[in-house]
């Protein structure tokens, strides 16, 4: 995660609230969707769709929140299906499986921490770009002139 960086313009109070909410939305959905990862992805997609015509600042942060949710969704889905295959089929508990669970837990904790940090800073009008996701969002989300 990067430190707060400069944004092309200073967002107003309403924008910072909506941008901050995009992280809070994924945070709440992340907790609710831990057993079923699809829930937090759906929640973030819905929030993104409702705000895609918002201002550049809001759109930018909704996109960053959505992109980070995609990779987390893929990782959590693998963990859920691997666990299901152990319970219901011939797959055995291996060192690789337990290592994957620990890795996923660390990734989820990092994501959770980054989400809280970004939600707080965004609410204060500071722009936070995440490692990789920020750069990817810059490619996808352009300022409309």
């Amino acid at each position: 995660m990067n430190s707060p960086t400069a944004f092309p313009y200073k967002p107003n109070d309403r924008e910072t609230e909506e941008a901050s909410n995009s992280y809070l939305m994924s945070l709440v959905a992340l907790i609710a969707g831990l057993p079923l990862p699809i829930i937090n992805l759906i929640a973030t997609v819905i929030f993104y769709l409702t705000n895609r015509k918002g201002t550049y600042f809001v759109r930018w942060h909704c996109t960053q929140a959505l992109l980070s949710q995609f990779s987390l969704f893929a990782m959590n889905v693998c963990a859920v299906w691997w666990t299901i295959s152990i319970i219901f089929s011939t797959t055995l508990i291996s060192n690789g499986f337990i290592a994957y669970l620990f890795t996923i837990i660390v990734v989820n904790v990092v994501e959770l921490t980054a989400t809280i940090y970004t939600a707080i800073h965004t609410r204060k009008g500071r722009h936070v770009e995440w490692w990789f996701y920020g750069s990817l969002t810059n490619l996808i989300c352009r300022e409309q002139r």
Binding site: M75, N95, I98, A99, T103, V107, F132, S135, L136, L139
Partner: peptide, 29 residues
């Protein structure tokens, strides 16, 4: 574009590196 690519590769390397490193431990025992 190059920056995204390098950062993406680095992130994937950290993830798979951590997974591989942890899987060296004999958790089953």
């Amino acid at each position: 574009m190059k920056k995204v690519f390098i950062e993406g590769i680095a992130l994937a390397a950290i993830f798979f590196g951590a997974w591989f490193g942890l899987s060296r431990i004999d958790w089953v025992s």
